[in-house]
Amino acid sequence: MKHASSAAPGLIGVARNVFAALGTTGRVIAGLAAAVLAATPFGAWNAVANDAMALTADTPVDVGPYTVTIEKVVSAKALGDVRALDPEDRLLIVVAQVTNTSDRPANAQQLTDIVPAPVGGGVVDTGGMPVPDSAGPGERPAPDRYNIADAGELDVINPGVTYRVALVWNQAGDARPAEVRVDLAGLTWIEEGFAGLDDEYWLPADEVTHSGMFDVEPPRSEAATGPDA
């Protein structure tokens, strides 16, 4: 601080004196720090976008109370008795295995939050409108869900029980994608809700945590009859 004797008054003076006292390396570091600080209002500290982890077939992923394994993606005219709302349309089916690894029962409805509609597969909503590829996980249409073993619906998934499920969306009749992007969206554990009114539940985070490209398989036969087409 040998130049400190010529101190200018005020904060600016202090800053000038400190800057003058720094060596070249110090000035470079201080300059960079100042630049990052100046960029703060423009999102310099935001998490890096698109940090979703890779999702591949037959690899188990932990999401909320579940372990989810995406098996395959199938496009078919029908799945057993299930058909698209519009007879011109098809069904886009994600086949997955789910296990509840927690010690409390889980609501199977949450699978529709965990597996948003695949992107790039021509999924249409219940009104027949195409879903834009940019739609966030919470904005995409929810699928119908079936237990493949009995073609029935699932309501509750108890701890330690594994099901093979089919998640079914309506797909535009002329869509013939070779591959689609399948996302998994996370759930956030709410230990204590607002004012303690609603505690201990999994809240959809609507944030993609895993993402991967899957080939779209044709059904075993186009006139599929079984739920395991």
């Binding site: 010690d103 409390r104 029962p105 029935g152 309501d155 108890n158 330690g160």
Partner: peptide
């Protein structure tokens, strides 16, 4: 016996 809680289902 491991204190896991299982809920009843309304399937079938």
């Amino acid at each position: 016996s491991r204190e896991r809680v299982h809920a009843a289902t309304d399937r079938s």
